[in-house]
Nucleic acid binder design. Structure first.
Length: 809
DNA sequence: AGCACGCCGACT
DNA sequence: GTCGGCGTGCTC
């Protein structure tokens, strides 16, 4: 009985979203395993694609002739049984392609690159040969991109049988190697060589005795040269004479390890815990020990020592011979936490996030896969780290929306973590100072085990928060981003040599160009949204599609010269601040100043070294920063997020304000927080002012209950887009009819409505929001919709389904 | 996705 | 008549 392989191919469409059956050539039988990548022929012609072996079978219903697998790309499976199962579950839960889920779990380099090669197979006309192939007999098809005439000529030649298209899947995953040297002779033979040397050949003599000292070992050539002073030239001579050979040595591309970190023999000792921390560590440790997949909610105020609880719980998992996963929202923003883990656990720590270079990402992944790294610190996608024997999973700042991926597959790391916890019998700890309403509600219901750290470790009170009503300020002093109290406080810090952080809440706000005569706002030609002014590049940019154009001198509509920019951008605030406080040194941090790799860390280091007095930035500065010299935190516009049409607007505002407040007075100096707002009476702002999470929680819960929103209801968002607005609307109307036929009567279907940004990238968007408590028909119906929208009735309609969406705009 | 097949209008 | 446009269906 011949075994056949089931392969999921890299063709992300609904029609091909299932395994295909292939023959296994005898030569490949040994290497082929479930979870290895393969190259398979697919479709007509000579097309080949990458695929994953997901199983073996001995028969198939398929009537046609089975094709053989062409090549095996991996010596070892790249997806183990757990992750294969997880990928299947993920595809089902998020209504996405299995192949897309597999790639999401793996480092980028494991996505093969498909090359189309155009090969000359028959005599060509002189002109064609010269123009298209420049004297060679093959070219990469990609070279002809953006040359439609050339492509047309190639297709013609193909039809005439003069050229052929070949396919090649390139395996981009390669280990980095450096040169090592290894003796080829034994001690006596090297000794013989030495005695027959010319007496003047001192260098070679030294080389030979060095080789004698490293018999049976391989040494990195660079190291050998440094240690012994022997030159590369001498080593090359030795190779020629057959004394030694050069061999490639595999090395890991390790991401920015801080050189001040200790080696594994001088690791930092655990800190003394207070009673609350100890109780938390004990509770988690007990579940690690008994392998219970309990979910904990660890709610601790800023500065309550959550991280130390994590570290000690992880140490327990390691002591039990298990591994641990630590997730943080945006790791590139928190280098401090990575360093803290490295100081405690040394080289057992691997770091995994999308900011790494592909090579680094791949190498960290392999260290984990091989069991060399036992603790993984990483962002969202690190939840798929191939750790075996997982003993503990931690999600810090569990309320952060960045744990939800906002493109397909739209998974939430929290749910994946719980799945893996169940698989391994590992507890999951959700940590936050301001838990999501969903998590806190589950903790109260007993679905999660609730742990609290109500006290700060240093026993310092939380900093006082002053709320400044901007309405009278504006009346008194005119348009300004700075109220008098804030300005006074800034001046005060400046004279005392202390530092300040200023945050501009830019959500839903940016600087746009408007004509003062006719009111025309400069808009993106592809999207239904105004263009944003970027002074650094002196262009107008669309934040949605990337469209860019020069800053207009006159209004494109009425040709008036009175075209100005409005809105509050960080640049504009910086300019105003420079005028008000000319002596202050300011560092601005936003998407523009941190675009370049490493700029983030650089700016933060500069601020930490007190090379500036004020750090001015957007949301990105709110998280995890810990600068002892910062005693003032100002929020310039606390409420720009409140007006958004999103039921989580208040929650986000409360989280953000609580978060930034924690940045002031972390060490022995007392801190102060000033929040400027036009809504001083809003409960989100008031409760943040009084550090009162509970009050906010109950208030917000009652609103959610009234409006039937999470955590009382679950939500799903469906989106459809089409280049023609009516087509998008029509498709959605049809989907709505289907939903109403199938779903339970208690389920609420809202819409279809045009999205807040109705047009993006030349497509019109409509959405439907489903709210439900329990609906046995929902899952099947949504799958049916994904199928149905492939048919001709939905030509050019793109439909996406977002379970538990984080944003509704 | 990428390709072949097949139907239709526009051209040497 | 044939060339090439695009809509349709299939890929183990």
């Amino acid at each position: 009985m011949v075994e056949l392989a089931q392969v999921v191919v890299d063709v992300p469409t609904m029609q091909t979203n299932r395994p295909y059956t292939y023959q296994v050539p005898v030569l490949l039988e040994q290497q082929l395993q479930v979870g290895t990548r393969v190259v398979v022929p697919f479709g007509n012609g000579h097309r080949q694609v990458q695929g994953f072996v997901v199983g073996f079978t001995d028969g198939t219903d398929y009537q046609g002739k089975l094709k053989p697998i062409q090549a095996v790309m991996d010596l070892q499976p790249v997806v183990n049984r757990e992750l294969l199962e997880l990928s299947k579950w993920l595809a089902d839960q998020t209504y996405s392609f299995w192949i897309a889920c597999l790639y999401t779990m793996l480092p980028n380099l494991l996505k093969g690159k498909a090359h189309r090669i155009v090969r000359v197979v028959d005599e060509l006309a002189e002109q064609d040969y010269y123009d298209l192939f420049a004297g060679r007999d093959f070219r990469d098809y990609a070279d002809f991109e953006n040359q439609p005439e050339a492509i047309a000529r190639l297709l013609k030649l193909k039809r005439a049988g003069k050229v052929r298209f070949d396919y090649q899947v390139e395996n981009r995953a390669k280990a980095k190697t450096i040169t090592g040297i290894r003796p080829r002779l034994d001690f006596e033979a090297l000794e013989d060589a030495r005695t027959s040397l010319h007496p003047n050949a001192h260098a070679q003599n030294r080389l030979l005795s060095y080789l004698q000292s490293i018999i049976g070992r391989t040494v990195v050539q660079k190291q050998a040269e440094q240690q012994t002073g022997i030159s590369a030239a001498t080593i090359n001579q030795g190779v020629k004479k057959g004394w030694l050979e050069k061999v490639p040595v595999e090395v890991y591309r390790t991401p920015q390890a801080d050189d001040r970190l200790p080696d594994d023999h001088h690791l930092e000792a655990p800190l003394q815990l207070n009673a609350d921390q100890q109780r938390a560590v004990d509770a988690i440790g007990a579940q690690v020990h008994s392998r219970q997949a309990t979910t904990f909610l660890l709610q601790g105020v800023t500065g309550s020592g959550k991280t130390e609880v994590y570290l000690q719980a992880i140490a327990q998992a390691l002591a039990e011979g298990r591994t641990a996963l630590m997730l943080v929202p945006e790791i590139s923003l928190t280098p401090q936490i990575v360093n803290r883990f490295r100081r405690r656990f040394g080289s057992q720590v691997a770091v995994l996030h999308s900011g790494l270079a592909n090579g680094e990402q791949y190498d960290e992944w392999r260290r984990i896969e091989r069991g060399e790294a036992k603790v993984v610190v990483g962002a969202r996608s690190a939840v798929f780290a191939p750790l075996k024997q997982l003993g503990l999973i931690i999600l810090d700042e569990e309320h952060e929306s960045s744990y939800k991926q906002d493109e397909a597959p739209r998974y939430h790391a929290r749910e994946v973590a719980k799945w893996r916890g169940r698989y391994h019998g590992a507890p999951v700890v959700l940590g936050s100072a301001t838990p999501s309403l969903e998590s806190r509600a589950r903790a109260l219901k007993g679905r999660y085990q609730f742990l609290r750290l109500p006290h700060r470790v240093n026993r310092q009170p939380l900093p006082p928060i002053q709320v400044v009503d901007m309405r009278p300020e504006i009346k008194r002093r005119g348009e300004s981003n700075f109220s008098l109290p804030l300005l006074t406080a800034l001046n005060d810090r400046l004279s005392r040599g202390e530092q300040s952080i200023l945050m501009l809440n830019r959500r839903g706000f940016s600087s746009f160009m408007m004509c003062r005569d006719c009111g025309t706002v400069l808009k993106c030609p592809n999207c239904d949204i105004s263009l944003t002014l970027h002074m650094d590049t002196r262009t107008m940019k669309c934040h949605y599609c990337g469209h860019e154009e020069p800053i207009p001198q006159v209004c494109p509509h009425c040709h008036s010269r009175h075209i100005r920019y409005y809105g509050t951008g960080t640049e504009k605030v910086q300019a105003e601040l420079e005028q008000l406080l000319p002596q202050a040194r300011i560092i601005r941090m936003d998407v523009d100043t941190t675009r370049r790799k490493g700029m983030h860390e650089k700016l933060l280091r500069q601020f930490g070294d007190h090379q500036a007095d004020v750090l001015l930035g957007t949301q990105m500065i709110a998280k995890g920063l810990d600068f002892p010299n910062v005693t003032l935190v100002g929020v310039l516009n606390a409420d720009t997020g409140l007006g958004l049409p999103d039921f989580r607007a208040s929650e986000r505002t409360f989280d953000l304000l609580s978060q930034v407040s924690g940045r002031a007075g972390r060490a022995d100096k007392a801190g102060q927080v000033i929040i400027q707002t036009f809504n001083p009476d809003h409960y989100a702002i008031q409760d943040a002012q009084h550090h009162d999470y509970d009050r906010f929680f109950y208030q917000e819960m009652s609103l959610r209950r009234q409006a039937s929103y999470p955590p009382y209801y679950y939500t799903v968002r469906l989106m459809a887009s089409h280049p023609e607005e009516q087509e998008a609307a029509r498709a959605m109307a049809e989907i709505k009819t289907l939903l109403e036929q199938r779903l339970a009567p208690q389920t609420i279907v809202l819409g279809p409505t045009p999205r807040a940004i109705a047009r993006m990238k030349r497509r019109y968007y409509y959405q439907i929001v489903i709210k439900y408590k329990q609906d046995p028909a929902l899952h099947k119906t949504l799958q049916e919709i994904m199928q149905k929208t492939q048919s001709r009735g939905f030509k050019d309609v793109q439909v996406s389904i977002d379970p538990d969406p984080q944003y509704f705009m």
